[in-house]
């Protein structure tokens, strides 16, 4: 630490003004970067889109997916991939407070797929019956008893 020697008033004033200017420059630079960055990275994991995809499931058959349900979960996306993880967590976010549990052991199982397929046949391989296809890769299976 230095001693308390007197500084030239002009130097002090100029340095405060310089700091204000430098900070403002930084603010402008941040503003420019943030606006460009956010426009380029608008909802990269399509979370808002998940609300649209799952809305038919929640609105047309609410009794099949009550809030206290624990639902199985099947997907064709690799679970370790970013896409697979984002789809699973995105579905969980939209469906909460319902819990989703990976696999087909629960009575009701949500299918969350990236592309069209023969979902009925896929369900049968897990001993599941296709209850309803809501489009956009979202389906509801039931356990066959």
């Amino acid at each position: 630490m230095r001693g308390a020697s007197r500084q030239d008033p002009f130097t002090v004033s100029a340095s405060v003004a310089l700091v204000a200017l430098v900070c403002l420059w930084g603010s402008f630079a941040s503003y420019g970067f943030e606006t460009a960055y956010q426009r380029q990275n608008s909802d990269p994991y399509m979370i808002s889109q998940q609300f649209v995809r799952f809305e038919p499931l929640l609105s047309t058959v609410p009794s099949a997916v009550p809030e206290d349900a624990t639902l199985g979960y099947l997907t064709d996306a690799s679970p370790a991939s970013t896409t697979g993880l984002a789809m699973t967590l995105g579905a969980q976010y939209v469906l909460a407070p319902r819990l989703i549990e990976k696999g087909a052991t629960d009575d009701r199982v949500i299918g969350n797929f990236t592309r069209p397929a023969d979902f009925a046949a896929l369900g049968q391989s897990y001993r599941l019956r296709l209850e309803r296809d809501f489009g956009n890769g979202v389906v509801l299976f039931r356990k066959e008893h």
């Binding site: 503003y31 990275n41 909802d43």
Partner: peptide, 16 residues
């Protein structure tokens, strides 16, 4: 003001 504007762009692009 600049910070608020930048944050607003972020909320608009990624509301979640």
């Amino acid at each position: 003001v600049l910070a608020a504007s930048a944050a607003w762009t972020g909320w608009d692009a990624n509301p979640q």
